[in-house]
Simulated scan of single mutants.
Amino acid sequence: MTTPLDRHDVLLADLDGTLYRGAEAVPGAVEAVAAAREQGVTTMYVTNNASRRPVDVATHLAELGFPAGERDVVASSQAAAAMLVAQLPAGAAVLVVGTDALVEEVVRVGLTVTADAAEAVAVVQGHSPDTGWRVLAEATVALRAGAVWVACNVDPTLPTERGPLPGNGSMVAALRTASDREPQVAGKPAPALLHEAAGRVGATNPLMIGDRLDTDVEGGRAAGMTTLLVLTGVSDAAELLAAPEALRPDLVGADMAALHRPVDELAPGPRPGWEARTVEPGVLELSGDGDALDALRALCAAHWAAGGGGFRISPTGEGAVRALDELGLRPATVAGADTPDPAGARP
């Protein structure tokens, strides 16, 4: 039995929605990462969230039980500061929309910080729960005057124990609308963060693990890495089925425990007990019984082989109905129901 831990020399793990949700660890994640460490496979923690210092992130991880030190954490704030210093003269003034953690990374690379749009030659924007209108207004003035704009990430939501809440991308959208500008993006899906994380430990065959198709999986693929999607955060079964090619993961697992499953069982493809086939473009038929996630892997393989995109699913038999319901693709929302939605069903 060959598992992902047998094939990869480091795990690059997203945090929010993958390892924890706010102050709570995702069930089973601590045990999976600890077991990987015992097997000799290190985990590097790669986060688009620039609101906290890497040392604080490491402390939070350790408090939850994860084996983590400051050097094990690679944050988008570090990548954003590196992008700024590569474009600006030493000591240039930067308007920071974000937390003190982002301020510290800007200062660390030899730039200065200002709250005055008239002085700012650049704007850097990271997540902060305290971002308000006044700083967004000041940043808008700076951007309209031509300041360089770097966003730590453009994730629209942030997974928490209360469910998805507005992420940095939602605040970026406000500035985008107000300034009629587009930012440079430091975090995933750009590959710089992932290359930095792998490079720190000299990895040659990293595995990128995350809960979002549009950041974690897309970023891993852009970096030339194998990707594992876990269904504990943002992306769900419907989004996975409809995903364009650049956002399709190599492996699909329910959670981090997938690291200890055979690779062949995690890859989208035909699965014992299930038959998934395309009966016409965008229309799938599912029959059989067994593990619901295996049904999803079989559906993905059939749908992607036929070109992917929007879909409807027709279940045949109680086992298929049960699996679709468990996956959030309920029978009331698939083929045969009174719904015009061609992009796939959501509960």
Rank of each mutant, 00 (worst) to 15 (best):
D100S: 15
G98V: 00
S170C: 12
W133H: 15
D294Y: 04
T131F: 04
A203R: 00
Y20M: 05
N48S: 01
K188F: 01
G132S: 15
T157E: 13
A29M: 03
P270I: 05
A223F: 03
G126I: 00
A258K: 13
W304D: 08
V185K: 06
E104W: 06
L11N: 07
E105Y: 01
A337P: 12
H127I: 08
V121T: 14
A142W: 07
Q184K: 14
W149F: 03
M256K: 11
R162M: 10
W274D: 04
T99I: 10
L240E: 02
A101D: 00
T59C: 09
V26F: 09
A292N: 07
S287F: 01
A80G: 14
E70V: 01
I209C: 03
T316R: 15
V26D: 04
A120V: 07
A192H: 13
V107I: 08
L266H: 13
L143C: 11
R271T: 02
V46P: 08
H60L: 11
L299P: 03
G282Q: 12
T316H: 14
L324Y: 02
P191Q: 11
L324S: 02
L102I: 05
E245T: 14
P347M: 08
L136D: 05
R271N: 00
G344K: 02
V30G: 09
A306E: 05
A173W: 06
A174C: 14
E326L: 14
L266R: 13
G282S: 12
D250V: 08
E105A: 04
H60Q: 12
G273C: 08
T18H: 11
L259Y: 06
A203M: 06
G344Q: 04
L136V: 09
D116S: 13
M44F: 11
N168H: 08
A174K: 13
G317Y: 02
A139N: 10
V123M: 04
F66M: 03
E218H: 14
T3Q: 10
V172S: 07
L229Q: 11
E138C: 04
L165G: 10
L5A: 08
S51M: 02
A137D: 14
G91A: 06
E31Y: 03
V121D: 05
A32I: 04
V57Q: 00
P159L: 06
G110K: 00
G310I: 07
F66C: 01
A93P: 15
R144G: 04
G199N: 06
G269K: 06
L296A: 02
G253M: 12
V113A: 07
S76F: 00
P206K: 01
T47G: 04
M256V: 07
V26T: 03
R277C: 07
A139H: 07
P4A: 04
V46M: 08
G220S: 10
P189I: 01
T42I: 10
Q78C: 11
G167R: 04
D338E: 14
A292P: 15
E265R: 14
V33Y: 03
A276G: 08
G28D: 05
G22H: 11
P331N: 12
H260F: 14
W304V: 09
D338P: 15
A337S: 14
H60F: 00
D130Y: 13
A68I: 01
L193W: 03
A242M: 09
R330W: 06
E280W: 12
L12A: 03
E38G: 15
L284P: 14
A29I: 05
Y45N: 03
A25E: 08
T2W: 06
L296Y: 02
L329D: 00
P67G: 00
A178I: 06
